[in-house]
Nucleic acid binder design. Sequence first.
DNA 1: TTTTAAAATTTGTTTAAACAAGTCGTTGAC
DNA 2: GTCAACGACTTGTTTAAACAAATTTTAAAA
Lengths: 244, 244
Amino acid sequence: MPKSIYETIYRDLKEKIESDVFAYQELLPSENTLIKTYNCSRNTLRRAVSCLVTDGYVQTIQGKGVRNIYQPVSQTAFTIGEIETFQESAARNGHHAITKVLLFTEFSINEKQSLYTGFPEGTDIYYIQRVHYLDAIPLILNHNYFLKEAVPGLTKEIAESSIYQYLEQTLHMTIVNSKRVMTVEKMTEIDEKYLMMNVQDYNCMAVVSSQTYNSNGVMFEYTQSRHRPDYFRFYDNAVRKTVL
Amino acid sequence: MPKSIYETIYRDLKEKIESDVFAYQELLPSENTLIKTYNCSRNTLRRAVSCLVTDGYVQTIQGKGVRNIYQPVSQTAFTIGEIETFQESAARNGHHAITKVLLFTEFSINEKQSLYTGFPEGTDIYYIQRVHYLDAIPLILNHNYFLKEAVPGLTKEIAESSIYQYLEQTLHMTIVNSKRVMTVEKMTEIDEKYLMMNVQDYNCMAVVSSQTYNSNGVMFEYTQSRHRPDYFRFYDNAVRKTVL
DNA sequence: TTTTAAAATTTGTTTAAACAAGTCGTTGAC
DNA sequence: GTCAACGACTTGTTTAAACAAATTTTAAAA
């Protein structure tokens, strides 16, 4: 349920763009026209449009208008781009997702772990290893580090379904921000074992390391996601800043 | 030279955050305080802050304030994130960059190429193969497809230095938007030959495919960048949208 | 017809104001 | 002492208005 006007307009325009109401490379109606259409102020409309710019859906050209540059992408298997759960992504792409918990334990962060997780030494953590299956194919091996005090009552059963659903719906925690680093790493024995990559002749994994913050500005999760390379896609849209 | 007020404020705050004027996890001065500091309107200040949010530098918390969540990253070798040229990135990370042109030719896009480049069939193109060296180590193998009519007068000599510098400073073209897809692909013979990856035991490459638009909304470039996996890092900051 | 200049239209920036909503400390009632 | 209510302070949303800058259209002049 969109609570704000600009968000409602943003979604409506986005839907129109995706459903080809505006053709690729075509100019959208002008601000003045859209203001009348949505019966809103100029600022509110411009805010909605600027969200579309961030998404890479349109491009504004001063003096000319707003150009539609959206082109649908072929959704081959698992694609990431925004913050979304494995279940959300699977549902969006029309697939069936299953999660298996390999390990559910807890410990305190040591010096070495502190360096790559970003948690201070001595922090109490839930450590979880999980495999995500998409349509019965093991795709992702996840190493989750959850801040214990921020995620009270986490159990193996919850980890089997969806941790984020538990965080948001039961603990009413809002996830806001996620810093991610994408790298390519050598395949490990654990990767091979659980993702059955031995039959393939890849010897690398696509690795996404992320630090996630909740609405209080607390980093409550560090996760390393190790993806089967042949099913991995990472989308991004960058807007160039004027250099100095 | 920043031309707008919000951009000036944005850069000043960013610099202050990077130089530890505000501590990690600390709240920045409130809007009202910063308005007086910069002698600007609330909207202008909020615009500057929202840029910092997009960068993952701060997080706003309604009713509380703006929290600094910036943590410096270890700049190991070549890292990408924004739209910037190889030269810019190298300079930013304090390295010496060299580019070697392997192939400079032109042709028309055929049906197969149209599918992955996004250029319409029959489009006239400059096709360039280049190797980027960082401190004498070959890191990136680039396949550039430039729209011929948008990049008149492109020569092999320009490709040796910096094509983007030519575009921006000579042709006065402004680069605005870049859609990118990150994947992991099998190493090819060309990769091995020019990046000397045979001595390593990786058999994959980090591949970034990008479509770049200029300020007229014209897609003028498709590029496939094939990165040595051991030197590749891709940074991203995602802000979660409220789910429906 | 071509060129030039002005006007209209478009997006970009900035200010001001009002109200909403969330957080926190204080005050008062119990 | 405990709890609730209030007020102060914080960020979030929306509207309105004015001017700037870039592009297109129109009209006039050559």
